[in-house]
Amino acid sequence: MKKILTSFAGMLISVTDLFAQQDKFDLLPAASYDRFIVYQNLVIFWIGIIGLIVIIKMKLKEVERIQKMGINKEEKNIPVLD
């Protein structure tokens, strides 16, 4: 009797699992902790992007400053020291 009941319960669980299949799927990790990690990484990602933009901007300013001074062009016929 115990075996029959257990197998029946197993069948019931399998069948309900079939019916309980979602029409919509979790498009993001389902657990709230995982989601938090995802959003946290997004913030870190943006900080990284902003950091890179600041570095490139600084580099660009430096390039423009050198170009303004006119010392970026290679002079031809420079005497070689060696």
Binding site: W46, I49, L52, I53, I56, K57, K59, L60, V63
Partner: peptide, 16 residues
């Protein structure tokens, strides 16, 4: 490098 640097900045924003 001027235009390439500006391009890079915009690409980074787009990536974001």
């Amino acid at each position: 490098p001027n235009f390439v640097y500006k391009d890079l900045i915009i690409w980074l924003v787009m990536l974001g």
